[in-house]
């Protein structure tokens, strides 16, 4: 095998098996940390919630819904990642 084949058939498959779970954890982490956009006035989920809250003064309801949305989002990402893992790695995750 030449070096490209070595990477394609040997190194990369093993590497992805090893890093798959830490990688999905990082994905979830970056979704959660995107909520920090609230501090700089970005209009992602929390920032938009903050903006709506400041016009309607229904802080509790809006942030409750935002919390539920974040929870559902992380669960969806985890579900998708486990489905992909089943499909791609066929249960041979380390």
């Amino acid at each position: 095998m030449n070096s490209i084949q070595v990477y394609h058939y040997v190194i990369l498959p093993q590497m992805f098996r090893r890093i798959y779970h830490p990688m999905t954890n990082q994905f979830v982490w970056s979704i959660l940390m995107s909520s920090l956009g609230i501090l700089v006035g970005m209009n992602e989920l929390s920032g938009e919630t903050q903006r709506l809250q400041s016009t309607s003064f229904r802080t509790l309801e809006f942030f409750m819904m935002a919390a539920v949305m974040y929870f559902v989002m992380t669960k969806l990402v985890l579900l998708a990642s486990s489905l992909i893992a089943k499909k791609v790695f066929k249960g041979e995750l380390s």
């Binding site: 959660l32 940390m33 909520s35 501090l39 929390s46 802080t59 942030f63 919390a67 974040y70």
Partner: peptide, 11 residues
């Protein structure tokens, strides 16, 4: 763990 800290604090 899966609700961001900033939302938890405000909530």
């Amino acid at each position: 763990r899966s609700v961001p800290l900033i939302i938890q604090l405000i909530l």
